[in-house]
Design a protein around this nucleic acid. Structure first.
Lengths: 278, 278
DNA sequence: CTGCACTATGAATCGCTAA
DNA sequence: GTTAGCGATTCATAGTGCA
């Protein structure tokens, strides 16, 4: 039985596999990460070869499974690159392995659309989206859909009110949702598994110094919908700390690993900047 | 050596595997289809079981490979359903099998975002996107990206013109693209692999009578970008004929198979309606 | 202060050339 | 033969600086 040796709200300069071994079983509420992609960022991180990627990730995913609570969720953002005019398949193979070899439940795939980096390629268009895969350990996960409700269109509100006068027969009809949540939030529409978040040009921000940051809106969305206040969010590949910032903003505790000292520095600066601005 | 027994611009009431056998090697320029999804619409079509889906599709994909020209492309729209709170994996397995077992080149994945069918589910949101997978036989495929160019933003046009005054040193640098194509189309920006096409409410249209139609904009996009005028488009699962309509609209010949007489009737009505409206 | 011009850059990829 | 490096290409976005 491992013990929990690590304090919260810190980024540890370790390989994530070493770091994860220091965490207790079922001590984490939510995992959000974007690991290094295969064959990218040579020089920055040690580049993982495409055909070794799944085997490289499996021991990490095993540890993630161990430390996550049964009510927790694991979100992973990763996209295959193209090589010789074909998109690689390792991301699909990874998803299949996580379920079939390690027993993760594959809840859903999100598509995050953004403004693609321009480029003309032989036989295809620039890339304008990335998938985010949602895994869990059980069917009873924390889920607060109305925390990410979007304002309804005018017309839809009217229609909803019309409908609401003739009360529906069954209370809720929806698993895991209390009826009054629906009523209270009449003006909020539920989002879908499509997230449109244009990538910002981070030219003069601290964020820009890390080569592969996702926008803060991404972890924000998943933290709101799939965790409660005060819970613990883990990012095993912390990079410049976007997951930590989002956690701070939303009143969650957090924890992360990162091997590059310079990114830890950037992340701590960003966190300090956020704390000062409050 | 098979001979081509079938006339163009017709929907044949056959199982697509039987129909495909009547087509000559390399006689088709473009394939666009949305096959029946696994475990759906029982009663309408014979439902294909999730765990048998890949093996069911492989012989069809082999025939598609045989009839497609080396310069052709194959687009397949298919999305896994959810079962017991998990999204099934057979679509990823299919993509992997098409490449690794049958030798198809996997060019790219498109994401088609739409307005999701409302519904509240346990632990996940409504579905707001479907993938479309692009396969080919060679790296030398027909590709007309500017046929689907979207108007550039005002500001980008100005910038482009400024740049164009100081001509770049090398002619093109980009394979498969003639320089003047770029210049002539200065006011068009290339799209990405993200297509946003809200699904129309087809409640009162002929289209609605088929349970699983994709919007005509979808085949339109692929026909424009990946085929030339006068070429032959095949849809092995024609349904209510959306691929045929799009082909007619764009001056392509077409051909399709469909086992249900009532959908062939609907498709022919739609085609007649289109012809009359011209 | 506003408007416009200009610049930097974002998980990119390909073909060519030199080694 | 193979590989590594370099230049060229593409545009949405945000920030800077000047008129």
């Amino acid at each position: 039985m491992k013990i929990k040796e690590l304090k919260l709200n810190e980024i540890y300069k370790m390989d994530c596999l070493d770091g994860l071994k220091k965490l207790k079983n079922e001590s984490i509420d939510l995992i959000i990460t974007s690991p290094p992609y295969a064959d990218r960022r040579e020089g920055e991180y040690k580049s993982i070869k495409t055909n070794e990627y799944v085997n490289w990730f499996i021991p990490i995913a095993e540890e993630l499974y161990r430390v996550l609570k049964p009510s927790g969720s694991f979100f992973i953002n990763i996209k295959s690159h193209c090589s010789k005019g074909e998109r690689e398949l390792y991301v699909y193979e990874l998803v299949i392995a996580l379920k079939k070899k390690l027993g993760w439940r594959f809840v859903d795939e999100f598509t995050w659309t953004k403004n693609g980096v321009p480029g003309r390629f032989k036989g295809r268009f620039k890339n304008g989206f990335e998938p985010i895969f949602h895994f869990a350990k059980s069917s009873e996960i924390i889920f607060n859909p109305y925390a990410v409700g979007v304002p309804m269109k005018e017309e839809s509100i009217k229609r909803a009110n019309r409908k609401a006068t003739g009360l529906t027969k069954n209370g809720s009809g929806f698993a895991g949702m209390r009826r009054n949540e629906t009523m209270v939030n009449r003006s909020l529409a539920l989002p879908s598994n499509h997230l449109h978040i244009p990538q910002k040009s981070n030219q003069y921000t601290l964020q820009s110094k890390h080569p592969a940051v996702f926008p803060v809106e991404l972890p924000e969305f998943f933290i709101k919908a799939f965790s409660d206040e005060g819970q613990v969010v883990l990012d095993p590949f912390m990079g410049s700390g976007t997951t930590a910032i989002a956690s701070e903003m939303l009143g969650r505790k957090w924890l992360g690993f990162e091997t590059e000292a310079k990114y830890i520095e950037i992340a701590n600066e960003r966190l300090k900047g956020y704390a000062d601005s409050k």
